[in-house]
Design a protein around this nucleic acid. Structure first.
Lengths: 157, 157
DNA sequence: TATTGTTATACTCTATAACTATA
DNA sequence: TATAGTTATAGAGTATAACAATA
């Protein structure tokens, strides 16, 4: 472990990722607030919309980076607002099957285009090529993080 | 506003940014937890370490993306743990001057190298060139977000 | 016994408004 | 009056453990 000084905060990778995300989300959050929906609730709805099949609670956890207990309450909130359908898997009664119902899909259809407009703004500024490149690099970082986890697990073994 | 369907959730830019950040932070959070320090407290300490001068509360707000009320409590927590010095600016008694004291700098020195090690792991996987490219693109996104804000403000005027 | 999901609990952060002190 | 910062308050998420139901 070296004693090199910490790189400048502005060049911290987590901070750069956070800053970019804030820049995108800061314009989107008011839209969500106007619909009385939190960022996390939106993440759940997006995950459900993206899947063409109902998802189990564990699957939503994986796709949204939320914790199980948090998700249970977020789902309860969305159900209270009548946005979700919940069934039980026929093969395994432990597994819940969550999907966006018509009201949930209507909300997605209402907010989605506003999200797209924001996205296109950024795409125009960067160009499609650079945006694709960004996605590649972000995926590499995500994978490097996972690899690191594996390396640590092996080091402990 | 077009009716194009939402892009796949996995390709949502905020989600890709979040995923990459999670990959990096998930290995770093246990280190912070072991020192009994939250991610936000760490962000504040890093911002203070990065500045070579004491920072006002507003300056820390700008650099950490925390809200004023949140920061007030985070600072109180760090002060309770004896990590910070607080003075009052001589020219303006409203302005506080916050800096990391020796205990705070010791914590930075302890945790910093662990953070650097994680960073180097990712740099090895991506190569320095690609990492630099990633920073450029993230900065472009951050700026595009700010531009969008300006454009909206002008549209309202 | 292991897995899926919920409930319990304590803490932290977010977000807005109201407030104090200084300018 | 405006600005810097804190306090108040309500709501939501994080994190860990304990639990119920099912496998």
């Amino acid at each position: 472990m070296s004693d090199a000084p910490l790189r400048p905060f502005a060049q911290s990778l987590p901070m750069a990722l956070l800053k970019a995300r804030e820049a995108v989300m800061s314009h989107f959050r008011p839209i969500l607030a106007a619909e009385n929906i939190t960022e996390q609730q939106w993440r759940v709805l997006r995950a459900l919309a993206d899947a063409d099949q109902p998802l189990s609670v564990s699957q939503i956890v994986e796709r949204t980076f939320l914790l199980g207990p948090s998700l249970s309450r977020i789902l309860a909130g969305l159900e209270r607002r009548g946005m979700l359908d919940r069934d039980t898997a026929s093969e395994d009664a432990r597994r819940a099957l969550i999907s966006a119902n018509p009201a949930g899909r209507a909300l997605l259809a209402k907010i989605g285009p506003l999200s797209e407009a924001r996205y296109r703004w950024i795409e125009e500024r960067l160009g499609a090529g650079q945006l694709d490149r960004l996605y590649e690099l972000l995926a590499l970082v995500a994978d490097a993080g996972l690899d690191a986890g594996v390396a640590e697990a092996e080091a402990e073994a």
